[in-house]
């Protein structure tokens, strides 16, 4: 019999091995995949985000928790899809073209996945064409763009303009973030949302989808 509190704690503590083992046990015992995600894993990641925001957790703890959740999700995702359980949203995530920094992007991906979103991680130095392909081929409904460098910030606008030119801008909400990014800049380039922290990316995604 699987102790589902262990699943919550394994994600919270970044223990991928235990998280995967308990998930397997829970599935064997007939637990609903959706409930495992919604009742145990998402609350754990929510707590991770809270601890990160108040400096109880730092980047290593957050990334390990995300890895633990990801390992379990790999088991659960096919089952969720088979039952018609859609994720909260599909996010095409990437660091903008010209920028090779990934840590901020990875933190945002971790928090979004913990918030129930399916994250399509396009990596770093992502071209507008890659974002467009993710929208068309993988049905992303949110585009999340990261930049660390002031010199690559203009490529965010280039990406948004390319989405318009490709006729897919209206199919998605766009959120932006990164160390030099501000709400003013996000407004100027026509993004729908902005977050100044990784943990805030989840609420930013929710907000733009409700708008």
């Amino acid at each position: 019999m699987a102790d589902l509190n262990q699943l919550h704690d394994a994600v919270l503590n970044g223990d991928a091995k235990t998280a995967k083992a308990v998930t397997e046990q829970a599935l064997a015992a007939g637990h609903e995949p959706l409930k495992l995600v919604q009742d145990h894993m998402m609350p754990a990641m929510s707590e991770v985000g809270r601890r990160f925001e108040c400096n109880e957790y730092f980047v290593p703890e957050l990334l390990l928790a995300a890895r633990a959740m990801k390992g379990s999700l790999e088991l659960l995702r096919p089952l969720l899809a088979a039952k018609g359980n859609e994720p909260v949203g599909r996010v095409a995530l990437g660091t903008v073209k010209g920028d090779l920094h990934d840590i901020g992007k990875n933190l945002v991906g971790a928090m979004l996945e913990g918030g129930g979103y399916e994250v399509i991680d396009l990596g770093v130095n992502v071209t507008p064409e890659q974002f467009i392909a993710a929208i068309k081929d993988k049905k992303a409904n949110i585009v999340a763009i990261s930049a660390l460098l002031t010199t690559t910030m203009p490529a965010m606008k280039t990406t948004i303009d390319a989405l318009k030119a490709a006729g897919v801008r209206d199919q998605v909400k766009i959120i932006v973030g990164g160390a030099p990014i501000t709400q003013t800049f996000a407004d100027e380039i026509g993004a729908d949302g902005f977050s100044e922290s990784a943990a805030g990316a989840v609420s930013a995604a929710r907000k733009v989808c409700l708008a």
Binding site: G14, V59, P60, E61, L63, L64, R67, D102, I103
Partner: peptide
């Protein structure tokens, strides 16, 4: 990113 995780 990997270094962050490897510290633990």
């Amino acid at each position: 990113s990997e270094a962050m995780e490897l510290t633990i």
